[in-house]
Write a protein that binds this DNA or RNA. Structure first.
Lengths: 249, 249
DNA sequence: TAAATTCCTGCAAATAAACGCAGAAAACCG
DNA sequence: CGGTTTTCTGCGTTTATTTGCAGGAATTTA
């Protein structure tokens, strides 16, 4: 069998089944595994396949596109995210809500971090999936098309079964009187469950949302362990929260 | 034998078999390998053949086996999707696997369709989310980064709790002897559960995958209710499946 | 952490290609 | 027809490619 022929066969198989194993190919074509590996290497060089440990994957199926729309206050959110990643270390179990701040957090994760991220937010999950070393656990249930997050009793029950190290909440509104408030009943139920199931609750928000109120209460200030904004920790706006016993970053 | 004669013979052989070996040609025509090599060189210069180490290939060979890019066999998958959407009607509960054929199905859903789609495949879920009228239920569990689908006991348990109207399986390989087969253990477990939990099992596959086998068995032909390919229902390739009692579209 | 795969590197054998050359064949021309 | 030129072919040598194999490193899995 000619080399090109062999490579054509391999490529064909990859395109057909989205995945091939070196081991099965070498028995099919009856050549050594080294030859297969070299073929896969060459095909990968040409961008025809994606080489992985043990075989190869098709290129077309493997890339999930995701929209990069203009995020509001992106630079502030980036700086919040960078403060937040410092709280995550190897081996941790991390629960996150949805929201653009969380997305920024996901994008800011250092590539060598090995942790487990749990979420019901589709955009967040997409980001986590691109990370090489983190495990991703998806909370299932009905999807809310508005918030792009899974909502419902199943999701809440699943969250309540857990006890994770840390939980990051993208926050819509926070003030000293009511604590965290939001405007979507289902999302609030989820966040409540998340807070209950976490050893540490970290609230991420841009300064703009501080001291604003939304209709539905998520939790009081006493349930929040940390508050992260783009402001320096000693900014006067944050003083009431420090006084309430929240660690501010 | 004249040079022109010889080259005509070579060209004929290449077009006939899509490939020739220098070694076999030189015994056939009874000339030295150098001569053959020179002939192939000239034919390659004229663009009549593609010269490779050890022989030559016809140009059609490359066209057939090296599709440019984009989703493999997209047009076939579109036509499969269009046949499949005919099976879905308002109010139905639909369970789907992942795979590019399923994505095409998701994109082909008529906008006014009101149904509930259930899946653990992230790319499929993303498509369903864009649809204005369908409810989307996400099966949660650990995400497999390779297959972009949730896998594990939670996911399987969740599926087993259901009894949906119809289930669409993107299929990797199917043949009359083993039935549906696949190459990812976790995905196979999921598909098995899906089949169990559905009143009707529809298998979607491009004709090319028919009569191919993968290492792990998903289910026998007797568990499949319908088979959809891009071929017309009376194509002889499909006859064995019709005979096995499967409705072919 | 230990065992099992898989991967990489260098190497050697087999095969194929390239090159120059000389003799044979064909084509050309007076 | 005879001589010259050009083209073609096969051979020996050298070079390049391909392939399998052994080992040790790296990665995955239990």
């Amino acid at each position: 069998m000619l080399k090109k022929e062999r490579q054509a066969y391999i490529l064909h198989q990859v395109n057909l089944h989205n995945k091939v194993l070196s081991s099965s190919l070498c028995t099919e074509i009856n050549v050594s595994e080294d030859t297969i590996r070299r073929d896969l290497y060459e095909l990968a060089e040409e961008g025809k396949v994606i080489k992985v440990h043990g075989g190869a994957l098709s290129h077309s199926f493997n890339q999930v596109y995701f929209p990069i729309n203009g995020v509001y206050s992106q630079s502030q959110k980036k700086s919040i995210a960078q403060k937040a990643v410092g709280l995550i270390s190897d081996g941790m179990f991390v629960l996150t809500s949805g929201g653009t701040t969380i997305i920024e957090l996901a994008r800011s994760l250092p590539p060598q971090l090995k942790a487990t991220f749990i979420s019901g937010s589709i955009p967040a999950i997409l980001e986590y999936m691109h990370h090489p070393n983190i495990e991703v656990i998806l909370i299932g249930d009905k999807i809310s098309k508005n918030s792009k997050i899974t909502i419902g009793t199943e999701a809440i029950a699943k969250i309540k079964q857990m006890k994770v190290d840390i939980c990051f909440l993208g926050t819509n509104a926070i003030d000293t009187e009511h604590g965290i408030t939001d405007n979507d009943w289902d999302v609030v139920q989820l966040k409540k469950a998340m807070i209950e199931s976490s050893k540490k609750v970290v609230c991420l928000t841009i300064a703009e949302k501080i001291n604003s109120v939304q209709p539905i209460v998520v939790c009081g200030l006493d349930e929040i362990d940390m508050l992260i904004t783009e402001l320096p920790a000693d900014d006067p706006v944050l003083k009431p929260y420090v006084d309430a016993g929240i660690e501010v970053l």
